[in-house]
Amino acid sequence: MGNEELILKLKEVFPEMDCVQGNDWPELSFGSDRLIDVITYLKQTPELAFDYLFCETCVDWKTHFNMVYHLDSTRYRHNVVLKVKTDREKPEIASLAHVYRTAEQHEREIFDLFGIVFLGHPNLKRIMLTEEWVGYPLRKDYEDPINIIKL
């Protein structure tokens, strides 16, 4: 499915969501409560078949977090980007570890570096830093006067 076709299809199914053409792929933005609905639809609809989550990351926009999911379909070779807005005070979002197994490790990394809590994750604990580490270093307001030497 080409990008235009994909946007039309997504607009038809999720009319309340914002779907635009990004630099490479269609980008669908929505709130964190709809994540599981959207993912289930994208993965299980036979003509979409987004079965491969190739990148999962997070961006700190100071007012909120944006979870970014890059999906690919190994059957049709079309891609879509999901941007999910998450509250900064209480960063919680559903885990995709049961849908895409690769998400398990990616989500542990995001929890470690951004402090986003993934609900329903089987083994949510720090992966890169030690358990005693305080704070989430990739957040924009992270300060560490001992370790970080600023240039």
């Binding site: 890169m128 270093p137 992270y142 560490d144 370790n147 970080i148 030497i149 600023k150 240039l151």
Partner: peptide
């Protein structure tokens, strides 16, 4: 990795 890193021993 001297500047702006939070985890490297200098």
């Amino acid at each position: 990795f001297f500047y702006n890193t939070y985890s490297v021993v200098k």
